[in-house]
Amino acid sequence: MSGSRDGRCACGSIRYRLLSPPMFVHCCHCRDCQRQTGSAFVLNALIETDRVGLLSGEPEPAAVPTDSGQPHVIHRCPACRTALWSTYGGRTAVRFVRVGTLDDPAALPPDVHIFTRSKLPWVVLPDGVPAFEVYYDPQALWPRASLERRRAALGG
C-alpha cells in the first residue's frame, strides 16, 4: 500500500483516510463476525487510531454483544449505518477498519485467516496465507515494524 487509502460509508456522509499502511490485515471467520456482518467473514485492517483521519462526518459508536464477553464497539455512519471500524477489548488505540469500506479494498488482501474452525464449508482459503483454527501468536507472524507500532499504540 503506497501513500494513503481513502474510504467511506455507503451514503458518503463519512469519509476517512488511512494515513499509513495498516499493521496487519485479518480475515476473521468467527461466528461473531459472521453474525455482525451478515456475511461469511470480515476483513479488518488493524491500524492505530491516530492514523485514521476523518475527512467528513463522525461515526457513532455502538457496543455489541460478543461470545467472548469482551467489549466490542462498532463505529457506524449515523445516516446509513455502515460499519466503518471497530475497537475490541476496550483497546481504543487500535482500530479494526473494515477493508470493504475502502475505495480500493483489493489493495489490502488478508495477511492471515483466523477462527477458521467456524469457516463456512464453501469458503476456500488461498494457498500461501496462514490460517488458524482460533487465533495465533502475532510475534510469529507480524513484521517487526508492525509489532513495534502495536506496542507503542497499546503502551507496552
Rank of each mutant, 00 (worst) to 15 (best):
G7A: 02
N44M: 14
A10L: 15
V112P: 14
V52A: 04
R95G: 11
P61S: 06
V25A: 03
S39G: 13
S146Y: 02
C80K: 03
D6T: 11
L108V: 02
D103E: 04
G57N: 12
V134D: 01
E148K: 12
H75M: 10
E60S: 13
L102P: 06
T49K: 13
S4M: 05
T37V: 13
A45R: 03
P22G: 06
V112K: 06
C30S: 09
S39E: 00
G100V: 05
T37E: 01
D137Y: 00
H113Y: 08
R31S: 15
G100S: 04
L141F: 04
P138G: 10
S4C: 06
Y88K: 11
S146Q: 00
S2M: 12
D103S: 03
H113L: 07
L108E: 03
V25I: 05
L55N: 07
G7M: 05
L108N: 06
N44Q: 11
R17P: 11
F115R: 02
I74S: 14
L154C: 09
V134Y: 06
P22K: 07
G3I: 05
E133D: 14
Q70F: 13
T37M: 09
E48N: 01
E148V: 11
M1N: 08
A79L: 11
L120F: 11
C28K: 04
F24H: 01
W85L: 00
V94P: 12
P78K: 06
V129T: 15
S2Q: 10
P78W: 09
S20P: 07
L46Q: 06
T116I: 14
A131Q: 06
E60K: 14
H75I: 04
T87Y: 08
E60T: 15
P59S: 14
L43T: 03
L84V: 08
D32Y: 10
G128K: 10
A152Y: 00
V25G: 04
T82L: 14
A93P: 04
L18M: 06
G12L: 11
G53T: 06
P59F: 01
A140K: 04
F132C: 03
F24N: 02
R5W: 00
G90C: 13
D103F: 03
S86M: 11
P121T: 03
R17W: 03
P126W: 00
A45I: 10
R15C: 14
G100R: 04
P78F: 00
D111G: 03
P71K: 09
A106L: 12
D6G: 12
D137F: 08
R5P: 12
R150E: 08
I74V: 12
A107V: 02
P109G: 03
D67T: 12
R149W: 02
P22M: 02
P110I: 01
H72R: 13
L125E: 01
A152F: 00
Y16V: 15
T92Y: 03
D50M: 04
G57F: 08
T116N: 01
G3Y: 01
W142S: 05
G90H: 10
H113N: 15
V73R: 13
L55Q: 10
G57M: 10
Q139W: 02
R151H: 06
S86T: 05
L19P: 02
P121C: 13
A93G: 05
